[in-house]
Amino acid sequence: MPREAEPSLNERQFVLQALTENLRLDGREFDKYRPLELTFGDEYGVADVTLGKTRVLAKTSAEVTVPYVDRPLDGIFTIATELSPMTSPAFELNRPTETEVLLSRLIEKTVRRSGAMDTESLCLVAGQKCWSVRVDVHVLSHDGNLTDAACFAVVAALRHFRKPDTSMEGGVLTVYTPAEREPVPLSWLHSPFCVTWSFYGEEGEIALLDASWSEEQIRVGSCTISLNRHGEICQIAKLGGTPVEAVALLQCTNVALTKVKEFSTFLDKKLAEDAKRRDKGGLMAELSAENDR
């Protein structure tokens, strides 16, 4: 496995110098994201997210299985984030790197542990049958800020997903194929998003949003804040690095909230557009089994 290229001394020096002069290499302001794009696939539950040159594909799938013995009333919900050599030849299959572990931990904490999805609704027969929902995150291209892009893709894919409809009659469970009954959406409680700050300078006094790959390479610390648009914080992770002023962190959280609100609105808009595209002759409104939460 070839090693990841390190930035040259010139690059390190120059990027820092430029940052002290309020300049980023791509001309962005410090608190600006690169253009975020989202496309849904033809199938339900496929979200393709591009953030500048970073591109992440998330695919949701579901199957009926047996629940865990210690959680008979809960369904199973897993998020798989495996980085393949497509992301960078420095990654190898079945040998997780630090990047990969951190990415999967952050997304796990943000989406799964924050109770974004109602896992109890995935239970079909207590202790015997439940849905297992799985999201596969495929990083196609890595140009920095994987966490935010991947988290957005996961949330988008899950909200777009429809699982096959089921019914219980006389103790017999029937799972309908898509041809028989229109699939139903997951029961979704809130949409958390990640916002990652990167810190530069001796005391981490310079903070950047959405660092590109070359910027990430030379940061002295980073902090990922996950929250939803109501301002409820799911997790804050600052994993080592240079200490940062508490007041600065508070400021970061405030900016993160405005970004999350933007993400939220953007996703809602895209979902609505997609629903319109799929809505053939207005049949969807009648068939929809969604309940207002």
């Binding site: 010139n10 120059f14 430029a18 002069e21 300049l23 980023r24 290499l25 791509d26 001309g27």
Partner: peptide, 15 residues
Amino acid sequence: WVGSENTKTVVLVGR
């Protein structure tokens, strides 16, 4: 490689 006294110039040429 782009070199200049002025950081702004380098960023601009690069872009």
